[in-house]
């Protein structure tokens, strides 16, 4: 099996896969070293970028996936096959809070938004963008929420570090908050998470 063939097989696998394929998975299937696979994947990504096709090989949700080029979105919409999920403002706000503050309890979400948010969280869970990560080891053991792999895939993010940076207080207004209450930012009291995946 020469390199060219391996690359072709990887392409075929990515083409047929339903979800982004991780390099581990590819190396397991092909019986080849991960380092080699990663290098080949990188080559494939570069090639797809320069090839000028209507699709790209992208690194999303810690894996690799072929996706249409964003600039051709309008044409694909004309197919009429896809129904985009329309977010309400409440849903986006809640999703943003969960994404940036995870693991986060519903009470924390509601404190930040100032409104009851149970229904929105439920909607996001139904859309599989948000999941229950476990329970927080505090009184009442409230559920803690976080984003899913589908969330990364949905927004085309490689991992959570790819989230757009959240504007800081300091950017909103310099120095003015000096001496104000420190924000209970880190949820250091979070219990070890029973991952549900």
């Amino acid at each position: 099996m020469d390199t060219r063939e391996v690359k072709a097989i990887i392409e075929a696998l990515l083409f047929a896969a339903e979800t982004p394929l991780k390099s581990e998975k590819l190396s397991e299937i092909l019986g080849l070293e991960r380092g080699m696979i990663t290098a080949l994947l990188r080559e494939l990504v570069q090639e797809s970028e320069s090839a000028g096709h209507g699709f790209l090989l992208c690194s999303v949700a810690e894996g690799y996936q072929y996706r249409s080029r964003p600039e051709y979105a309008e044409w694909i919409r004309r197919l009429g096959h896809h129904r985009p999920f329309r977010f309400s403002r409440a849903a986006l706000e809640t999703l943003a809070i969960i994404a940036y503050r995870q693991p986060v309890t519903r009470a924390e979400i509601e404190y930040l938004r100032g409104v009851e948010s149970g229904a929105v969280v439920k909607t996001l869970m139904e859309k599989r963008l948000v999941k229950i990560l476990g329970k927080k080891e505090i009184a009442g053991r409230p559920l803690i929420y976080g984003t899913t792999r589908d969330f990364l895939e949905f927004f085309g993010l490689r991992d959570l570090s790819g989230l757009p940076t959240l504007r800081d207080f300091s950017e909103l207004a310099p120095d003015a908050l000096e001496g104000m209450l420190p924000l209970a930012d880190e949820d250091s009291s979070v219990a070890p998470i029973e991952t549900t995946e």
Binding site: A73, H82, G156
Partner: peptide, 9 residues
């Protein structure tokens, strides 16, 4: 960019 709105599989 969102899946099924801007990016398609």
């Amino acid at each position: 960019p969102q899946l099924d709105r801007d990016i398609f599989l």
